[in-house]
């Protein structure tokens, strides 16, 4: 009986401490770095939310750089993948369809230059990045569609390429949303 009483009373005390910990962290985070704490949101000139730096978006128009495949179409109210096993025939079929779609959207570019990250579903369904190769290989299509010279697009890709953290950790990536915002600005600026 005594152990139950101690258990209940200790539980209450610890609940208070754990809640206080989170509220204090929230308070400090909101005071010191409110933008990051709110999800690194990106706004347009009219102060409307475009998206978040960390959350990918669905790009289908030929004039934008495309991101990874997302079975949830980048709807960030949830997250997820189809969880296809390597041996799942549906996965193979989807991948083949992606390769075919790529061929028709990017005529003249050999399939052997198509990087694997563009035809596979990301883990989160919200991957904001693609590999540098995956950005470069799309340049001819975007140039043709928007009229922006390839050289200028190459510069934009270089501008949005993030090197490995501390020079070694992780992979070199390109943030698709930030890159496309610049593409849009360039198109509108002309």
């Amino acid at each position: 009986m005594k152990t139950i009483a101690v258990s209940i009373r200790t539980t209450v005390a610890l609940m208070i401490i754990v809640l206080a910990y989170q509220l204090v962290v929230t308070g400090i985070a909101q005071a010191v770095m409110p933008d990051k704490a709110d999800g690194s949101l990106i706004y347009n000139d009219k102060h409307e939310i475009i998206g978040s730096k960390w959350i990918g978006q669905n790009f289908t128009s030929p004039g934008y750089f495309h991101g990874r495949i997302s079975s949830i179409e980048y709807n960030a109210v949830s997250s997820g993948t189809p969880n296809y096993a390597p041996s799942n025939p549906d996965m193979l079929e989807r991948t083949k369809a992606s390769v075919e779609a790529w061929k028709s959207e990017n005529p003249g570019i050999p399939v052997s230059e198509l990087p694997v990250d563009l035809i596979t579903n990301s883990g989160s369904g919200l991957d904001p990045h693609i590999s540098v190769e995956a950005a470069q290989v799309q340049i001819p299509r975007i140039s043709k569609s928007t009229g922006i010279p390839e050289e200028q697009l190459k510069e934009l890709v270089a501008k949005h390429t993030q090197d490995r953290e501390l020079g070694v950790l992780g992979e070199r990536v390109v943030n698709v949303l930030l890159l496309n915002i610049d593409v849009q600005k360039t198109v509108n600026g002309k």
Binding site: L92, V99, G123, D127, H129, S131, E133
Partner: peptide
């Protein structure tokens, strides 16, 4: 099975993985 499609697969198995990792 994916590599056999003739794409550029230097990155390894990327299904279900994030590019930054």
């Amino acid at each position: 099975a994916v590599n056999a499609l003739g794409i550029q697969h230097q990155q390894g198995s990327m299904e279900g993985k994030e590019v930054r990792f």
